[in-house]
Amino acid sequence: MTEKQNSNTPDKRSIGGDMVIPVVALGFTLYYFSTIIDSPWTAQVSAFFIGTILIVLAAVFIFKSVAKVRLGEAGFGFSKLFSKADITSGRLSLFIVTVLYILLIEWGGFTLTTFGFLFSGMLVLSKGRDKGFIALLSAGLSLVGYGLFIIVFETRLPHGPFEWLMALVL
């Protein structure tokens, strides 16, 4: 696991972040139960068993956390999960670029969109430095990907303008 930098050491008393997983687990399990309530027993037996244990575990965790907050031992802050470093390190921007990558790859095709993603992703992280090198590297990597995945392995990755053009040329 990654080592945290000193500047980002989270406040140990903020336990809001710790509660995300149990709350998600609790919510998902209850939703899951709602989908099997009228199902044959074969669909229910295993899920009810696992789900009940998970509900108990999550509920106890949440209860204990609330108790800690009430006693003043901790607060509901989210500093473990979110901090200024998410913006300064480029994490948030990289996440947005990743979402755009998945959204656009279907239209732009594998090679062009991967180039766009690698270029912008690296640029975000390098804070705008080494543009030329990053452009070259991104182009090289996406072309290697094109050669390996689409030409050699004939994987059915999304095709876009670049792939159509290459198909005409080849």
Binding site: G109, P158, H159, G160, E163, W164, A167, L168
Partner: peptide, 10 residues
Amino acid sequence: RRKFIKAAVA
């Protein structure tokens, strides 16, 4: 679908 468009370009 892209194959469709590819064919359309061709």
